[in-house]
């Protein structure tokens, strides 16, 4: 049943995460090039390839509101929701708009993961990266009464009883939460294929299953975990960020625990293929400037986002790296197609 009642928008929670750490706005190399500067001549169709209320939608609407309310841009950015296929419906639409500089869409790891699972004919290489904007992180947790105290304990348990030790997560098999635990397992010297990952509808259900003793551990995003961490029902043993997150100051990173793995759930903006350098330069400058706005800072802090800007070129390289990394983790799990 699609988008039905039970489709908990994990993304809603995910997007609304995290207390913001010190944010580096980043400066873009936005100088005009050979073709001369470019600017939009009409309203920009700003696509959230999902329904209203999810993470993509929240990012699209928030950034559109901030931009429209600023003097950075004088055309409108009406947000269009194109729901379906985990994003592939929206992506097909953008792919059909090749070279149209008045189309943008918000994006995150599914642009890599969904094509890898074979469920979308389009992947990130079919689009022009504009900018990476924000990031969120994964956490690894157990029920409060569990014997597991550290990340080492967690992976030791997995290694000891691969089939019997179950780990719940909020996303599909082979998607974000599964990658986050399998990748960490691989780095901890445990076979990624030995992770008995159970997919739940959203981080909330996955957490409850662990609290209720139905699963042994849970992997989800910071925001989803916070309520049950605060109440003492769930203990987080590690976070996937490079540095500790402000919302969970006592939780060590995987790297501190001796596991060389980081994972961030980033979000950014892309456009159709075939945009000119001037058009890309215009947009990356636009979003770089947006991140500097006080109105953005207010929204960002309120939504608990963490700025993680990359310009078009950096973002493009980053996407390729992510794609390689995800593919190798999926291969380790036994899922490469």
């Amino acid at each position: 049943m699609r988008r039905g009642m039970f489709q908990i928008t994990a993304a809603t929670a995910a997007a609304l995460t995290l207390v913001c750490a010190a944010c580096s706005g980043g400066t873009a190399s936005g100088s005009a090039d050979d073709d001369g500067p470019w600017a939009p001549t009409g309203s920009i169709e700003y696509i959230a390839p999902a329904g209203a209320g999810g993470g993509w939608d929240t990012l699209a609407r928030t950034s559109a509101n901030v931009l429209e309310g600023s003097d950075l841009i004088d055309v409108r950015l009406p947000v269009t929701n194109m729901e379906g296929g985990g994003g592939s419906i929206g992506w097909s639409h953008v792919a059909s708009k090749e070279s149209d500089p008045h189309t943008l869409f918000v994006t995150s790891p599914p642009i890599i993961l969904v094509p890898l699972s074979g469920a979308s004919p389009h992947d990130h290489t079919d689009f022009t990266p504009i900018a990476r904007l924000i990031a969120d992180y994964s956490v690894y947790g157990v029920a409060a009464d569990s014997d597991i105290q550290t990340a080492e304990d967690l992976f030791a348990e997995i290694a000891a009883d691969p089939r019997g030790f179950s780990i719940g997560g909020g996303s599909a098999v082979g998607s974000m939460d599964h990658i986050a635990i399998a990748g960490a397992a691989g780095a901890a010297g445990v076979s990624a294929a030995d992770v008995n990952y159970i997919s739940f509808e959203g981080g909330g259900e996955a957490l409850l299953a662990t609290v209720g003793g139905h699963t042994d551990a849970v992997v989800t995003d910071v925001a989803s975990a916070i309520p049950l961490v605060a109440s003492g029902d769930v203990r987080i043993v590690a976070v996937s960020s490079e540095e500790r997150v402000e919302a969970l100051p006592d939780v060590p990173t995987l790297q501190e625990s001796g596991i060389d793995f980081t994972f961030d759930i980033w979000r950014g903006v892309m456009g159709p293929a075939g945009l000119t350098d001037a058009q890309v330069a215009y947009y990356e400058q636009l979003f770089a400037d947006m991140l500097e706005l006080d109105t953005w800072a207010t929204e960002r802090d309120r939504l608990g986002w963490d700025d993680a800007y990359m310009d078009s070129a950096e973002f493009g390289v980053f996407l390729d790296e992510q794609s390689t990394q995800f593919e190798s983790i999926l291969t380790d799990i036994g899922l490469s197609s």
């Binding site: 988008r3 039905g4 009642m5 039970f6 489709q7 908990i8 928008t9 809603t12 929670a13 997007a15 609304l16 209320g53 929240t58 959203g202 909330g204 259900e205 957490l207 409850l208 925001a223 916070i226 309520p227 049950l228 605060a230 109440s231 003492g232 029902d233 309120r302 939504l303 608990g304």
Partner: peptide, 25 residues
């Protein structure tokens, strides 16, 4: 519990978080 049981309550959870209220125990 801070856990939404449906798409609708997930939206409500999102709203609460945005408003600076963390639902939960």
């Amino acid at each position: 519990l801070g856990v939404p049981g449906s798409g609708t309550t997930a939206l409500l959870l999102g709203a609460l978080l945005v408003l600076g209220v963390t639902p939960g125990p």
